[in-house]
Each structure stands twice: as C-alpha cells, then as structure tokens.
Design a protein around this nucleic acid. Sequence first.
DNA 1: ATCCTGACCCAAG
DNA 2: GCTTGGGCCAGGA
Length: 117
Amino acid sequence: MMRHEVERRLRRAPKSEQRDTAFQKAIRSIAKGKVATYGQVAAAAGYPLYHRHVAQLLRRTHEGLPWQRVVGAGGEIKLKREAGMEQRMRLEMEGVRFRGKRVDMAEHQHRFKTWEF
DNA sequence: ATCCTGACCCAAG
DNA sequence: GCTTGGGCCAGGA
C-alpha cells in the first residue's frame, strides 16, 4: 500500500467514522412508529448539511438499524421498487400511516432529544 | 484538478 | 402535482 494512501486514510477515516457513529446513534434513537428525514438525522447527529451522507451510510450498512424510519423530506420514501415497498411495509407494520405516497408527518414525525447528542 | 453520481433538500415556476 | 436549477459533501474514475 502506498504511503500517501495510508496517510490519506489516517487523516480522514477517524472523522467519517465519528460521523457514521453519530448517525447510527441518532437513527437508533428514532422511536418505533415514528420517522425522521435524512436531514433531521444528520442535524441531530451534529452534522447539518450531511443528509446525503446519511443515505450513503444506510446504503453501505443498515444491519441492526431501524433504517425504515429514515425517509426523505416531507415523508417521502426514496428507495425504488422492491426496496421502497419493503420500507413502506415495515413502517405500516409499526403503525405508521401514509397519506398517498408519503408518511403522515404530522402524526409520525420523531422529535429528537437534542441534548442526547 | 475536473466531472459525475448519490436511499438528499428546497425554492420557483 | 409535476420539473428545474441550485446547493450540499465525499468518493470514484
């Protein structure tokens, strides 16, 4: 492995790992039957503007996380086809109701306890 | 360095 | 309800 690559990893890995840990912690804190948007998860974890990274993390690894509780702005499910259907089904099994294509956010918006982060 | 892409977001029209 | 254009960040080609 080339030296510059090693240095690159040492320099950046810790930060992104911290972020991912914070994201996971925030996601795990979403109550059953509630949802939060990518942007809200990022902000609650202390990284506003990092909503795309929340998505990236979930795409990489969602094992053991209540990933179905993370939705797009306005309660929209962003996964396509099968994956989208699965997310909707998982949410409905938790009692989450939809208004058409979106989660009824007025009823199911999770409120993060910001002092925990 | 540049360009593209992504389980994004938002304001406009 | 759209669609568009802009903004955001990091990783890969």
